[in-house]
Nucleic acid binder design. Structure first.
Lengths: 69, 69
DNA sequence: GTATTTTTACCGCCTAAACAGTATAAAATG
DNA sequence: CATTTTATACTGTTTAGGCGGTAAAAATAC
């Protein structure tokens, strides 16, 4: 369970959008190394860089907790 | 719309858990400055540090996109 | 098959995140 | 009220993420 892979999710969306890593990086305003690291599931990246990449790919982030309403 | 505030969400959950910033930081294995920054919505924090804090508070992250299944 | 594109990987440099310590302001407690 | 705890803010140091450049490996196109 919970073998969710953020890197793969982003890579799939990037492919479907017809973008290379470099193109995605430029659109998101981050370096190509960052996109590469994200797709390799490196979690020490900065949160704002991840958000920038997700925004380009139209992926939204939601935070779920038992207390949420 | 979308005035969602991650810092406030985390702060509320921390309060309900009866934790101080320092206690939460220690439990998450991060510095107290990081917890403070997260609650102040500083987005340049590292993703793994945010995940560590969310885990302690039992908050899950979901990524939503039009392509998801 | 070869040529081209893309991905993966590594390299130094620079910047800023992360940290502990400290100090003050604010909040909570008695 | 005073006292204690917590949150906020600042500082100096250390560490590593981010970056472009480069190069080799892999995938794709011709």
């Amino acid at each position: 369970m919970n073998d969710f892979n953020l890197g793969t999710l982003i890579k799939d969306h990037r492919k479907k959008a017809g973008l290379t890593q470099l193109e995605l990086a430029n659109l998101a305003g981050v370096g190509k190394t960052t996109v590469f690291d994200i797709e390799k599931n490196k979690e020490t990246i900065r949160f704002n860089n991840l958000l920038a990449v997700l925004k380009v790919l139209n992926i939204k982030v939601e935070f779920i907790s038992p207390l949420n309403k």
